[in-house]
Design a protein around this nucleic acid. Structure first.
Length: 445
RNA sequence: GGAGAGAUGGCCGAGCGGCUGAAGGCGCCGGUUUGCUAAACCGGUGUACGGGUUACAACCUGUACCGCGGGUUCGAAUCCCGCUCUCUCCGCCA
């Protein structure tokens, strides 16, 4: 969420930002509603001032009436009091009307305000869609195979690493079981990612709720814009509906951990990591990536989140660092990847900048997105009321950033496909062997 | 599923119609004292939105805010109603 004052003072920046992101907003409507509301509030304040003044006279007057012994003087004072009491009644009529009008305006303002995106940072290239993303660098060599390359789907079937038909029978499209060595590989990647972040990078490990209240979804910026992507879990009870949402990323739990709190600057930065199951409806993707483990409704992800001071430079530094963390993991797995600076059109409403990592996937003969590092400045913190007291004692909004460390089973696609042998087996990446009881190769049982 | 209790500032906690933006404590900031640190003592310390004013800051001033929304009243943290959330006990499940 943006600061209303910032929008008021920088309408051009906000308008251009939304346009660059290809997000249509009713900025004029918002500004007009805001101006109207403010005018009404000003008038309401004047009325309240008058009323308070009168009210403050009545108190002492009542005291004097009680103390007054002389009936004549007392009657005079009571007359005064009665007069005074009349006036607020008149004022009240007008202020009630004003309040009514202001209240009617508020939902309109909020609805628009929540849809105003964070303008992209100046270093983000302009562009319409992911086609216009800019490659920052490449790492590793894309291998050429001397045998026909099998897709992860073929390998999975042959080596019984996962079972999509049974998953679908049980849970519908985009569902799967991981089986045997497939399940082990999945756990191994996640453990490697988690251990690296905790024991080498100094992140604090958390387990997080994946079933959360609406406030957490709205606070982290996934609502209202992405509402259709979340599974809603609700039960009708006698007193109403008990509604929760399944989170699509551990980012929700990590970022909303300090929801509504005021931290102390000495507590920052917070470096948090979690492994959590992620749920995504993938609404509107019918026919896209329909087979295999690329686009699925449920997966597990190790996610890193940074909560830091309200400082642009510091945010940018952390952005580089969380990106480097993930690159390091891919390098340990020896998976070729490229780093893509997303263009304005590819950014979500909450991002100032976003850098994706795409890992080479032989069956696609292309790089496929496996990581996404976001820099959000105080956009989420505002919605979450996530603040800190700085060294001057001033309360400020934090900055937040996040990045994937490893999302599996998607990351199994490049692992299986890149480590396959001519015989149709899969070598286990060295970095994962300690997590697989030393297993070196996955063959048909 | 049944019954009860509660929601106050960064935190804890008092207040239960006007003298309350809110006692007291903790924390934090400034000062005094002190070989250093600590302790002790003194003072200060909420947020948001307006207006004045200023080069900014500071300062002055107004309004709102004691979970949220409504009602009663000249006046509500305080009384009444609704909602949300939290906790406790019993039951059930693990």
């Amino acid at each position: 969420m943006l600061d209303m004052r910032f929008i008021r003072e920088n309408p051009g920046v906000v308008r251009d930002g939304a346009a660059a992101k290809n997000i249509s907003v009713d900025l004029d409507g918002l500004l007009e509603l805001d101006a109207r509301s403010r005018a009404l509030q000003q008038r309401l304040q004047e009325l309240a001032t008058q009323q308070n003044r009168i009210t403050r006279e009545i108190g002492p007057l009542m005291g004097r009436i009680k103390a007054e012994k002389d009936p004549a003087k007392r009657a005079e004072l009571e007359k005064q009091a009665t007069e005074l009491r009349q006036r607020p009644t008149e004022i009240k009529q007008e202020s009630l009307e004003l309040q009514e009008q202001i209240k009617a305006l508020q939902p309109e303002i909020d609805a628009r305000l929540l849809t105003i995106p964070l303008p992209p940072d100046s270093d983000v290239p302009l562009g319409k869609s992911s086609e216009d993303n800019v490659e920052l660098r490449k790492w590793g060599n894309v291998p050429s195979f001397e045998f026909p390359v099998r897709s992860h789907i073929e390998l999975g079937e042959k080596l019984e690493l996962f079972d999509v038909p049974r998953g679908v029978r049980l849970a519908g499209s985009r569902s799967y079981f991981l089986t045997g060595a497939g399940a082990l590989l999945h756990q191994a990647v996640l453990r490697l990612a988690m251990d690296m972040m905790v024991f080498e990078k100094g992140f604090t490990p958390l387990t997080v709720p994946v079933l959360v209240r609406e406030a957490a979804m709205r606070g982290t910026g996934f609502f209202p814009a992405g509402r259709e992507q979340a599974y809603r879990v609700g039960e009708i009870t006698e007193t109403g509906e008990d509604e929760r949402f399944l989170t699509g990323t551990g980012e929700v739990g990590l970022t909303a951990f300090y929801l509504d709190e005021i931290l102390d600057e000495t507590q920052l930065p917070r470096k948090l990591v979690t492994q959590s199951t992620c749920f995504r409806r993938e609404a509107g993707t019918y026919g896209k990536d329909t087979s295999g483990l690329y686009r699925i409704h449920q997966f597990d992800k190790v996610e890193q989140v940074i909560i830091c001071k309200n400082d642009r430079e510091e945010s940018i530094r952390w952005h580089k660092e969380i990106l480097a963390n993930s690159e390091q993991l891919l390098q340990r797995l020896n998976l070729p990847y490229r780093v893509m600076q997303c263009c304005t059109g590819d950014l979500g409403p909450k991002n100032a900048s976003m850098i994706d990592i795409e890992t080479w996937m032989p069956s696609r003969n292309a790089y496929g997105e496996t990581h996404s590092a976001s820099r959000l400045y105080d956009f989420q913190a505002r919605r979450c009321e996530l603040r800190y007291r700085d060294t001057q004692g001033k309360v400020q909004y934090c900055h937040t950033l996040n990045n994937t460390v490893a999302a599996s089973p998607r990351i199994l696609i490049p692992i299986l496909e890149l480590y396959q042998t001519a015989e149709g087996a899969v070598r286990v990446p060295e970095a994962l062997r300690p997590y697989m009881n030393g297993m070196e190769i996955i063959t048909k049982q």
